[in-house]
Design a protein around this nucleic acid. Structure first.
Lengths: 129, 129
DNA sequence: ATAACTGTTATAGCGATTATATAACAAATC
DNA sequence: GATTTGTTATATAATCGCTATAACAGTTAT
């Protein structure tokens, strides 16, 4: 799994980590049951501080992507409370949808974009690697 | 137009303002050509500082929702560079789509949610007010 | 048992962001 | 001329993001 940090990005480092790990899980490069590197290992690997990695892992735990175990570290464990996930998604895409309506992006175009993104993750093996 | 600030939210005040104004435009409660309140008026109305409102307006200008005119203040003017808008949306919904794939939310369910949000804005008059 | 790991917690410091408070200026409006 | 507009300039405080050490309690391997 290739993790890279962009130190020039205005996105917080721990959020970059979180997002890339979510992408990794979505594309199947990280599978349920896999252990993520220890906070110290990953910190050294991407040249950031241990606590920044720890924060990323904490967010992932809070969002139901991993379980933090003292023995095995951060283990990918997908807890899917659909109602909660849909509620989170609703808030995450609300502004994007409003912008689309404002800017005259039709519903079909939004669907096309959504499908494109969705398939990019769901069919990763077929298209890449 | 009802604007409200949640001082307990972890979202920046100027972003709350920006989002609510975008919602207002999407739902047609604010129309193209309308003038937004002056930074000082709006600041006093929602009990925040003038510069915070100014920042919200600046972001809206940068994103092509308003034009700032010395005479008329912030005027709603929707500039729609579709390529740019779609590119912005792609980044905004990427994580949400990845989370959906991770958590086993099917493409149809995502479509349903998207439609729900989209129609909430596009058909505001029919459902509310 | 000893050593080397793990996550966790605490504290401290630095820089950037967020928000506030004044103040002043030029242009437009009344 | 007085008021209102956006704009700009400082200054200050609070919070956030990130780093740097350090220590502790469990787990694992030797």
């Amino acid at each position: 799994m290739v993790l890279q940090i962009d130190f020039n990005s205005d996105e917080a480092l721990y959020m970059q980590l979180r997002n890339q790990i979510i992408f990794g899980i979505a594309t199947g490069r990280i599978r349920e049951g896999d252990s993520l590197p220890s906070v110290r290992q990953l910190a050294e690997y991407v040249s950031i501080n241990m606590h920044t990695v720890n924060k990323a892992y904490s967010v992932l735990r809070e969002e139901g992507f991993v379980k933090l175990d003292r023995r095995r570290g951060a283990v990918v464990a997908l807890e899917s409370d659909k109602k909660r996930v849909l509620e989170e998604m609703r808030e995450e895409i609300a502004v994007a949808m409003a912008k689309a309506v404002c800017k005259g992006i039709g519903r079909e175009e939004v669907h096309r974009l959504v499908d494109e993104m969705y398939d990019l993750f769901a069919n990763w093996e077929e298209s890449m690697e």
